[in-house]
Design a protein around this nucleic acid. Structure first.
Length: 635
DNA sequence: CTAGGGTTAG
């Protein structure tokens, strides 16, 4: 292949070859277009464009559309330049129009494509939109998503005679499905005379997006041909609906049927692993990438880093992170935020300054991680420095979550008045997360007076969130106010709120085991309970006394003790101790916050069994080792 | 000239 000319030889212009243009086959050898292949900046594109104008090549729609296409779609192009270019075309054809339309639809604001369509029609730049035009317009409405605009595009498609072409009908299904109108999607689907692969996949995607998982499953199972997109629609849909376990199951089936997963499936599988704390399976993906020599793209890399961080394996995450060739703001953000929740606040902040040195601009999410780092590591002296640089240097407008981090930080450090001040002065209405942060702080520091006010406010705000009741109830319990606990339970019952059952996951050799407090459905249940009583015995010898403050009311002491000793994470720990090699780290993921008793017990167990336990709870990580925890008993 | 379906951080 010839090497790329750095600059276009303007000094030796080609003789205008229009209107004796060669046939289409030779057209591709037209000098202007050959240069386009090596074009890598707008500066070069402008030169080519100028050249095309002077040589008269711009009069040819093919040449014009290629230049426009480059400007519109190339990463180093410019959409506005393409738009200008289009408006100067004498007689743009539909193909050229579609090129620009596609650029609009895949931009940050897909609906700009609709505006472009209307303008082009009105100015007669566009005479006959074709099937591709409508596919693109419908896609824009799906991504917004906007049902009302989608219906209008549907009408236009019928008006121009494309309403019953499969390629357009497919996107009608997609549009209605994405707008949550599964009935309309179904109607459009049933109107297709001859379905193709895409029809099925779009219908499947619509069902998934609308939450009709049973119907989706039925359609999926009934399909005779399942291509890679079919599998990805299914897996990605499940993962994005937080059905992580099901997503992994389908992934397993996909591999069994020897379909090669693509990047999006692998990213979604890693997301599922991250949520479940399924590190073994995540590691399998990493090995798979190596085995198939799949390039570690920035997306795959970020997904892997995030997965390892959410499984509490900071070392592996950092290893992948350093191996990544390209690091964009998302990659840095994942690493910084992940270090923060793993209790490595100082490392997170150090990485942040490294990011600044490499001149990657942090965004608002990055600063959530940075503030979290200050919060989880108690770096109260530094926080304002970062908060100010966020607004002053990086011009990131703080949102409610940033203020929430501040409240959380001051609250954790016992500066409750400072936390209250933040709430009073924040420029927006504090949401329930903000009040929740304050309530947690009240519980940690035993401020039941303020805690009660905040707790009641929260319950008013979110009467169906069981966690809010539990927190207030724990606050009462910690102060021995058992009557108020009982009253709260009554209100909870009255509002029909069910306490979310605590459950713990543990990933063993690529299989995720789930435990719920006191359950005995696991095949190894008998061994687990035997192990549990052995653990309790050893704990007692080490001076452990059950902390039943946070147990349910209406039990006597012995019942309470039994109840806490069967908490889901204790079952998971017992299971882990039985099934893993001595000395290895045991990783557990919990859906709720770790209770005080389990926290104390796990600390002691780490010493008794010489094991490291990594427990991920709702909000952060606990690395238990040698009888202490990385959170310094602050959570 | 020939364009389809699914995509990452809190």
């Amino acid at each position: 292949m010839a090497s790329a000319p750095a600059i276009i030889p303007v000094s030796a212009p080609q003789k205008p070859s229009l209107p004796w243009l060669p046939t289409p086959l030779l057209l591709s050898q037209y000098p202007t277009l050959r240069h386009l292949r090596y074009c890598s900046s707008m500066k070069q594109l402008r030169q080519i464009h100028g050249h095309a104008i002077t040589s008269g090549a711009m009069l040819d729609n093919f040449v014009a559309s290629r230049i426009l296409s480059f400007s519109a779609l190339s990463p180093c192009g410019s959409l506005s330049y393409a738009r200008l270019l289009f408006s100067h075309l004498r007689k743009p054809d539909t193909f050229t129009f579609n090129t620009l339309l596609r650029a609009y639809v895949s931009s940050a604001d897909p609906l700009a494509g609709l505006l472009f369509y209307m303008e082009a029609l009105e100015s007669s730049a566009l005479h006959r939109p074709d099937n591709h035009s409508f596919a693109l317009l419908l896609k824009a409405c799906s991504e917004a998503p906007s049902l009302s605009l989608g219906v209008m595009v549907h009408a236009q498609a019928i008006k121009f005679g494309w309403g019953s072409l499969v390629s357009v009908q497919n996107f009608l299904v997609h549009m209605y499905g994405s707008c949550g109108e599964i009935g309309m999607a179904r109607l459009a689907f049933d109107g297709i005379v001859e379905c193709d692969d895409a029809s099925m996949n779009m219908m499947l995607g619509g069902l998934m997006k609308c939450g009709c998982f049973e119907d989706a499953r039925q359609l999926f199972d009934g399909m005779s041909e399942r291509d890679v997109v079919t599998w990805s629609v299914m897996i990605n849909g499940l993962v994005q609906s937080s059905r992580f376990k099901e997503g992994l199951e389908i992934f397993r089936r996909m591999l069994e049927e020897k379909v090669e997963p693509n990047e999006s499936v692998l990213v979604n599988v890693l997301t599922a692993c991250a949520h479940l704390g399924a590190m073994e399976q995540g590691m399998w993906v990493e090995k798979y990438l190596k085995r198939k020599s799949i390039k570690l793209t920035v997306r795959l890399g970020t997904a892997l880093v995030d997965m390892y961080l959410k499984c509490g394996n900071v070392e592996k995450a950092y290893e992948i992170f350093t191996r990544m060739e390209e690091k964009n703001v998302l990659a840095w953000t994942a690493m910084i935020g992940g270090l923060a929740i793993n209790g490595r606040g100082k490392d997170a902040l150090q990485l942040f300054s490294q990011m600044e040195m490499e001149e990657v601009s942090p965004n608002e999410v990055t600063f959530i991680g940075v503030l979290n780092a200050c919060s989880h590591s108690g770096l109260v002296a530094d926080v304002l420095k970062y908060f100010n640089s966020m607004t002053e240097v990086y011009k990131v407008k703080p949102n409610v979550q940033h203020y929430c981090c501040l409240v959380d930080l001051y609250g954790r450090c016992g500066m409750l008045d400072k936390a209250e001040e933040v709430i009073r002065k924040m420029p927006m209405k504090p949401n329930s997360a903000v009040w929740g942060a304050l309530l947690s702080s009240c519980r940690i520091h035993g401020n039941s007076l303020l805690g009660e006010v905040v707790g009641r406010k929260l319950i008013e705000l979110e009467p169906n969130n069981s966690g809010r009741y539990v927190l207030l109830s724990n606050l009462y319990a910690a102060n021995g106010r058992w009557d108020d606990v009982a009253e709260l339970r009554r209100v909870m019952k009255e509002n029909g709120v069910m306490k979310m059952p605590g459950s713990s996951f543990i990933d063993l050799k690529g299989h995720v085991h789930e435990f719920i407090a006191g359950d005995n459905v696991h095949p190894q249940s008998k061994e687990i309970y035997t192990m549990l009583s052995e653990m309790t015995k050893k704990l007692r010898l080490a001076g452990y006394k059950a902390n039943t403050d946070q147990a349910l009311l209406g039990m006597d002491e012995e019942e309470k003790e039994t109840a806490v000793s069967y908490h889901s994470e204790k079952l998971a720990i017992a299971f882990g101790l039985i099934n893993t090699e001595p000395g290895t780290t045991i990783r557990i993921t919990k859906n709720l916050r770790v209770c005080g008793d389990c926290h104390t017990a796990t600390k002691m167990l780490s010493k008794i069994y010489g094991r490291e336990f990594v427990v991920r709870d709702r909000g952060r990580f606990h690395h238990f080792k040698d009888g202490s925890c990385s959170c310094n008993d602050f959570w």
